[in-house]
Design a protein around this nucleic acid. Structure first.
Lengths: 332, 332
DNA sequence: CCGTTGCGGTATATCGTTATACCGAACTGC
DNA sequence: GCAGTTCGGTATAACGATATACCGCAACGG
């Protein structure tokens, strides 16, 4: 592969001039510019990003580290981030943190982080200490609902309000005996804790009782079994708040497994507004996490951080809004 | 951030010795090794991957380029690849090719590809010429159903057999008037063409007629409208082959929109075996693309390519198997 | 006692860029 | 006519690793 020197020789100029042309730096004459571009064309030259990165310290690439690739939530977020970053001339590269314990350490190592201009770290499933250990010279923005060291920029969702809205919606649609699948107070303000708090606030406000059935993994299969079992034990349940849409799929299936009808017998609402929710059964009502809001904040924030702007750690909370579909009843 | 020189100074050895220790190269004494590791610890040194990459030409990272992050098919494949690669000490980094036309060019540029030890390129949505233009010194493995330049390693699915199995299964369950949603002969052996061929082979074998309703985007929403419309025009349809599971979701919804029952009135089978298919309604019957098979082939192949082994371009076809769930009837 | 071998370790060049400083020629203003 | 700018361009030294070649010393065989 040709290098910049080859191009310089071909065009009869110095390497710096080639570099200047390729980076649109000012001090280069029109005629020279053409000669260089011509030589680039003839040799099929393309820049070596590794060398550029080493010398300049910038790579043009933003890293996004997610716990897993095969969860639609991250896929949908990543897709939107990629588009938004592309618009600012940056490039998104996504890594999975929990392919193995070993690979998690590696993905979070200073060495790996340093290959990016900035890192977006989805903290779901990470521990406070894992993140606190992070040493890095590059900007890091945390994403997701988990308590984390305050020295980082951190964007999260308004879990409590979202859960409150979801639950209130169930109640307004006539539910009187409510069940939350997933969730439970974990003793610190995690996603699970905060959504449970919101669930309980809505119940309290309405003077109703409800119960929480925690599950270990937020997977459809686990939720399905848990909800079916519970509905058989406790047939009066007429409203289920699923902690995520992924859990919600399982809840819909579990309601059917128990021989009941979604909506008419048991209303169901999820959380996350994943794309498939629109087409499952008559649609899964849910809480929208405002990905677009998050994405534009993130892009703005890393722009400023990369530019070296000094500002205190930003802790932002994105709004949660209710999306009504066929798994719940409208009030009245 | 400390560099290798700092560590060398701290330990009272040369940089090469530090490098030798850190890379587990033989020619270093036990005592020296300890001194170096100790210095590394004290300084909190981590290697600069960019510098290593520049000098050695290897990065330890494999790139996976997918058309979009927000499609579960790629998420599921990427997750399995990440795990399998982690086991061989490599690291997976995923990029999206179609965030914008601009970013597609960039993702496929020699410059970008050169930052990886090998590149896995999902060719769905790419044109023959886009891929044919690819110039790269690194191994590239193509993934997916699309006709592509034969000089590349290429893994695809046995689309024809998969579609045949799906269709035969519908027929065995009693379907007599079949409809394929998505698909159509595109004039070259694309995924759409091959799945359509398989569909038609099964029909021919059974002496039945069927029709194909192409759709532009393989999205639930488009499929839903298309299938509902068709079922109203043509009420006798009792079996639908959806070209993908994603389309299948839409078909299930469309069948209900048309006032019919999935399975009892209209059997439905999809393709891809996406995770959510197990929990939608009573489960969506589908064709499994043998991701595990693909993943182990890919890992093996890039191992050999990276080792510099010379072998002719590998064109492999993964087996397709039927997964029966609640959207179809068992024969008899 | 001397040539050889092997072990532990080092000096130096190099990967392909960009940052920095500097330089010569042409132009400007007075 | 000369100092001061501006413009176009270059030489050189990094960035932080690794590849290569080489070196000193102890052990060893004959």
């Amino acid at each position: 592969m040709p290098t910049m020197s080859d191009v310089a020789a071909e065009a009869g100029v110095s390497v710096m001039t080639v570099s200047n042309v390729l980076n649109d730096r000012p001090k280069v004459g029109a005629a020279t510019k053409l000669r260089v571009l011509d030589a680039v064309e003839r040799l099929g030259y393309e820049i070596n990003l590794t060398a550029r990165g080493l010398r300049s310290g910038r790579t043009g690439t933003i890293g996004l580290i997610v716990p897993r690739f095969d969860h639609p939530y991250f896929g949908e977020l990543a897709a939107k981030l990629a588009v938004a970053l592309a618009a600012t001339g940056r490039h998104l590269s996504v890594e999975q943190s929990n392919a193995s314990p070993e690979s998690e350490r590696e993905a979070l190592s200073q060495a790996r982080l340093a290959t990016y201009d900035a890192v977006l770290l989805s903290v779901v499933g990470l521990h406070y200490d894992d993140v606190d250990r992070l040493r890095t010279s590059k900007p890091v923005v945390l994403l997701g609902e988990q308590q984390m060291p305050p020295r980082f920029d951190h964007l999260q969702l308004d879990n409590e309000t979202g859960a409150y809205l979801a639950t209130r919606h169930l109640i307004e649609g006539g539910a009187r005996k409510l069940l939350m699948i997933g969730g439970g107070d974990e003793g610190f303000p995690s996603m699970s804790t905060m959504r449970t708090v919101g669930f309980e606030r809505a119940l309290r406000e309405a003077g109703l009782q409800g119960s929480v059935r925690p599950i270990i993994r937020y997977e459809p299969a686990d939720a399905r079994v848990a909800v079916a079992e519970r509905l058989r034990q406790d047939p009066g349940v007429d409203g289920v708040f699923a902690i995520t849409d992924q859990v919600g799929i399982g809840v819909l299936a579990g309601v059917r497994d128990a021989g009941l009808r979604v909506r008419d017998d048991v209303q169901v609402v999820g959380f996350d507004n994943l794309a498939f929710g629109e087409h499952i059964d008559d649609g899964l009502s849910t809480i929208d996490p405002s990905h677009d809001w998050v994405v534009s904040r993130v892009v703005e924030l890393i722009d400023r951080r990369i530019a070296g702007e000094q500002l205190p750690p930003q802790h932002l909370t994105s709004p949660a809004t209710l999306v009504v579909r066929g798994s719940t009843r409208l009030p009245g």
